[in-house]
Design a protein around this nucleic acid. Sequence first.
DNA 1: CTATTGTCAATTGTCGACAATTGACAAAAT
DNA 2: ATTTTGTCAATTGTCGACAATTGACAATAG
Lengths: 222, 222
Amino acid sequence: MFSPVETTDLVQQIARQISDAIVSGRFKPAERLNELRLSQEFGTSRAPVREAARLLESQGLVVSSPRRGFFVRTLSAKDLDDIYELRIGLELHAADLAIQKIGDAELTALEAQIQNLYDLAEAGSIEERISADSSFHRMLCSFSGNDRLLKAFDDLATDMRAGIALIGTIYDDPYRMAETHVPILEALKKKDRQGLREALHFHIAAARDQIVPLFESLNKTP
Amino acid sequence: MFSPVETTDLVQQIARQISDAIVSGRFKPAERLNELRLSQEFGTSRAPVREAARLLESQGLVVSSPRRGFFVRTLSAKDLDDIYELRIGLELHAADLAIQKIGDAELTALEAQIQNLYDLAEAGSIEERISADSSFHRMLCSFSGNDRLLKAFDDLATDMRAGIALIGTIYDDPYRMAETHVPILEALKKKDRQGLREALHFHIAAARDQIVPLFESLNKTP
DNA sequence: CTATTGTCAATTGTCGACAATTGACAAAAT
DNA sequence: ATTTTGTCAATTGTCGACAATTGACAATAG
């Protein structure tokens, strides 16, 4: 009859806001999180801010140095490379699992997401296209039926977004971005396991090869 | 010349102790973490305990319910199944990466770990054998050179240990446990990618098929 | 006897305060 | 000029306290 009343949960709210600031690039890597100033901005005391920072710490977004405070974690080119490399392994496995369980409803959802990518290629911001791309891959992972795998993907996605935000903007060919998803869907429809693996591998490796060099060149001239 | 003086870092110490208690089964699933009692036992105030709990929260060992506190997370049979299923994907990918980079030093280290398993089969506790088994697989992951993958493995290993602790004890055939690692090493030596994948898959799936049913039967009679 | 309501101790969420430590800057020495 | 030492404001780590909420139990009504 009634829906639950909004559970405020200050810590979660603060963690979310800080996380967004980091992922969106508003907080730069290695930047110090000033507890006092943050707490004043949030209109709270320092305690919830510290707890939120701890939460982000084991999530990997923040590192703590005793007696020196919390800092936005730095992201090296190798980190990004590792992230995309792991993503290949994760999604290939997700694909293996999903190809057995997937039904028409799931295929339709993926198809709609690709259509969405085409639409955004016409009229959409880079952020929207990146987000839609991520959604497609997240969907694939969720169709594996493995919650733990999905969580691992989400962790990686967070860092990928942070990496992209750091670069500022990426060159993207929106139509190509949409197109390269089609072979993945086709292979899924045909239940062509090997073809699916190849299409996915190609797609993710291409993304990696576009992002990582950009990031490297960025850090060469500080 | 000198090594850094022990940085106390109360929060990390507390988090470690609570984590150990959960993983070792001394804290049962769904058990409430009483902040006041814990802080008294640690001889601190509640603040560091709460921060430690937050740290464990996004690590997945603890869940928080607003206004009700922190609880040890529950582990379902599906969770365990997902964990082992993901582990297969993770280690297969690690193997793919490691097979290219691995050298004699690494092979020797893995061999020593297998020898260790044989030794512990003679005279060693179940805990020691489980720990040694985990070390072997962790090594393999570390040889992938992908730090992020290694971290993902560590996260899974934590939960696997918790699952095993929950069951209390597992039936293990120590010699068989040691033996099934040999084909993995052999395939690595021969750089036989397909053989390695099969050996690993077989090995981990066997572990899953031993653990998960045990866990299911445990939860049927509460 | 069962179900609802009222009460209360136990516990959490949040706060402000204080001591300890750090990093920076200035002063002094080589 | 460079290095060392001394000083100090800024910041963190930790604490104890208080209000708000919860869950359980007792009292009451049907």
